[in-house]
Structure formats: C-alpha cells, structure tokens
Nucleic acid binder design. Structure first.
Length: 200
DNA sequence: CGGTCGATTCCCT
DNA sequence: GGGAATCGACCGA
C-alpha cells in the first residue's frame, strides 16, 4: 500500500478557490498494533489515534514536536467480511510530494525547482497545504477539501526502499525494517541526502 | 556539505 | 514530567 501510493496525486482545495496538486514521491508504512513504530502499537485507541482505526482511505493527521503536523492515509486489506478494508490501525505516512499545481497555477518542469522544499518532508507538506487536526478523520476519497487522485505515470517509477526516518533509538527489529518507499529517480524526497537506497 | 542543537506544545503515563 | 513519524539556523571544513 505504501508502495502503491507512490506516484498518486494529492490534491488540496481551499474555500477561496485556490488549489494545490502534487505527486506523492515518498511514503512510510506503519503496520498496526504489532509494529513498535506505529501509533497503534499494543492496540492503543486513545482519542489522538482514533482515526487510525477507521476505514481505509481516511486521513489521519496528528501533531508532534510541538509544532509540526503529519498526514497519513489509513489503509488495510479488504476481506469478505470487511469489504472496504481498514479498521486495523494501519496507515501510510506521506513524507514528500512533488508540486505540480501551486496556488492554482500549473508549474512547468523547468520552474519546478523553485518549489523544491515546499513539500519535502512531512512537516513542510502539512504546513504549506495548511493541514492540521481540523482535517483529521477526513475521507480522502471525496474530492472536496483534501483527496487522493489517480496516479500519474506510475509504470515509469522505480520505487526504492530504506528504513523509516526519525523513529526512536530503542533497538527493535521493527524499526530497522525497510518500510520507507520513495521514487528513486526523484529529487523531491526528504530525509538525509544519503539515505540508503535499495531497489524494491 | 554534514553535524549539532534549540524550538515548542500536545498527549499519555 | 518526558518524549515526540521534524525543521531550520548555525557552525566548521
């Protein structure tokens, strides 16, 4: 799922008519109650993480470091008894987006570099798209305020993997798993420049 | 360029 | 009371 989100379009629309659209280039998977790096670790169901237990396609936005918000897409496999999927405390963090439409203006590839840092990193992404806890729990399949659109040229994307970024120092096999996914050819990904790159 | 460090507030223990 | 799925400023090379 985290891998599948690479290349999809993230769209934000404001009441005044302004729009942003960008291509998702970096994600991280958080696999649920058994994942030591996940907010639902141990089956936790506090008010803050309530959205993580909703159906697949729900947005989970939380606040951290006293100043930053982060955007996640709730996911989880669909089953016969759970057709829509989700409900198991699993989500994908969106870490970086390549800006395509900024302030309702289509950005040419040649001018794209001016916006290099706009959505590079989960904190900056939320800051520039003005996403906070007020948008937590939104259905991201509804094209109204914030939503995911169709993928761009996904077939061209070579997805690379690495360990997740910014988790604590506590040694755990979970924290070393290669659950970060990014477009290996993109110059829009976040994190330390020299994050290990491995083919997916 | 890479490393270090302070900012700042919410949430759970 | 302590830590947090980060960022940007600042430093030295």
């Amino acid at each position: 799922m985290a891998q599948g989100l690479i290349g999809t379009m993230l769209v934000r629309a404001w009441p005044d008519g302004r729009r942003f659209a960008g291509r998702v280039v970096e994600t991280e998977a958080y696999l649920g109650p058994r994942d030591a790096g996940c907010h639902t670790f141990g089956g936790r169901r506090t008010p803050r993480v309530a959205s993580m237990w909703k159906q697949a396609g729900t947005g989970y936005i939380y606040f951290t470091y006293g100043m930053h918000h982060m955007l996640n897409v709730v996911c989880g496999p669909a089953t016969v008894t759970n057709p829509g999927g989700g409900g198991i405390g699993m989500a994908v963090l969106i870490r970086a987006v390549e800006p395509i439409v900024v302030d309702s203006v289509l950005i040419d590839a040649e001018n794209r570099s001016k916006f290099r840092d706009l959505c590079r990193g989960p904190g900056r992404l939320c800051k520039h798209l003005e996403m906070d806890r007020g948008l937590d729990g939104l259905d991201l399949t509804v094209g109204q305020v914030l939503w995911l659109g169709l993928p761009g040229e996904v077939s061209r994307v070579k997805v690379a993997t690495s360990a997740r970024v910014g988790l604590g120092n506590t040694p755990s096999p979970w924290l070393e798993r290669k659950l970060r996914y990014f477009d290996g050819a993109s110059s829009w990904v976040s994190g330390p420049r020299a994050m290990p790159v491995k083919p997916a």
